[in-house]
Design a binder for these strands. Structure first.
Lengths: 218, 218
DNA sequence: AAGCTAGGTGTACGGCGTACACCTGTCAAC
DNA sequence: GTTGACAGGTGTACGCCGTACACCTAGCTT
């Protein structure tokens, strides 16, 4: 049943996963599903567990920094395989055993790396959703700005207004393409952004760890 | 209408904001609302705009770091006033003028602070949802773990099992209360976590800026 | 006076989650 | 070998949701 739900979400998005639709997919009447899950929330929980179950286990041979990095990037790969997972994870509020297990193991990596329990707590908060391998897509598509792609002057006027009103966003969008204004619509390299922020955080963590940071002494 | 919607969401949560319910609140028939918004998504967009409109404007006298910090913490205050805003912002995909304006102004602060367009782009990604004043609530409530609060041995057994299975989470939860195991259920100081991560990032940004970081030279 | 338009109305459709009562096949205990 | 528990599938129904579509009305412009 979970397998069917995950497959359906992979194929048609998480919105397509309704009790009725899933039941149909399984050749069964909707209410039959309720013999296996208490409600739809629990179904979503189960689906998230499937994804979390795909995270690769920790490699104990690695130092904490590469270990966390590898773990998080593995999570990212799993979440990218299931595009709906981002939304599903964000909407979940209950922590299932699989989720707790993953968080515990990640916390353990920090602890073994010499982080105090205190600092471990804060750095995991600082990582936030990045421990699930995703970060918010703030400007996924700065609506095709300077591009003037297909047609009329109207489009150009719109672009000009955008440029006048949001000059910095335009600048940024252009920078994201390496200076080629015609490629602005393409969006930016999410993987690069992700690793950039991740490494920035990990470096900051290391600095705090090295100086024996503690919330009490702040 | 937006005012009514925001009020309703403040009072009863964003889930209570349905077209029917909102119409009822306004003493009007549901379909009447569609003369003012194209669909419910646009209503949500408008509600987010109201919140973003409450962000305090930038103080041009400040240096970039305190300026960004103040701006983001102001956003946080607004979002905390409207607890539904977090979820609403996360679910939005269209960028309204108010949202674009805020992002543009924030980007401008970085630019004026000496950040390249390139670096500005990346640091804004790194901030992620924190520019809206919130971060994910990863473990909002590590289910009352070591506490053994009200009653039976069963509870104690559960707690013991939790401790055995998720030792690091327990450790973290205890650390969050400053070492008092009886307060574990209380959750942690979100405001502190937020500022911790924010400052960590801002410091990292400053370091990159100072060393003239560029994605090309990476 | 004529006509446009902004905005409110009423009905209806298809979808959703799920409560509740019911049926059926399997299998253990007697 | 019969009985009874139980896991799991069925059917009907309720109340909610977003919204398409046709209609009405008051007020303003010309």
């Amino acid at each position: 049943m979970l397998r069917a739900a995950v497959g359906l979400a992979d194929a048609e998005g998480v919105d397509a996963v309704s009790m009725r639709r899933l039941a149909q997919e399984l050749g069964v009447v909707p209410m039959a599903l309720y013999k296996h899950v208490a409600n739809k929330d629990q179904l979503l929980d189960g689906m998230v567990d499937v994804v979390v179950g795909e995270f690769e286990p920790a490699d104990p041979a690695l130092d904490w920094q590469p270990a966390v990095r590898a773990r998080v990037l593995s999570a990212r790969r799993a979440v990218l395989r299931h595009p709906w997972a981002r939304q599903a994870i964000e909407s979940r509020t209950r922590r299932t055993p699989a989720v707790l297990g993953y968080m515990d193991s990640l916390a353990g990596t920090f602890r073994r790396g010499g982080f105090s329990a205190d600092l471990t707590h804060h750095v995991m908060h600082a990582l936030g959703n990045r421990i699930w391998g995703f970060s918010p897509e703030l400007f996924d598509e700065p609506p095709a700005a300077g591009a003037v792609p297909p047609s009329a002057e109207e489009q150009q006027a719109l672009a000009a207004e955008f440029a006048a009103r949001y000059p910095h966003i335009l600048e940024i969008a252009v920078a994201a393409t390496g200076g080629d204004p015609s490629g602005v619509g393409a969006g930016c390299d999410e993987q690069f952004e992700f690793e950039f922020a991740l490494d920035l955080l990990l470096d900051g963590f290391d600095r705090l760890r090295a100086q024996g940071w503690s919330s009490a002494r702040r």
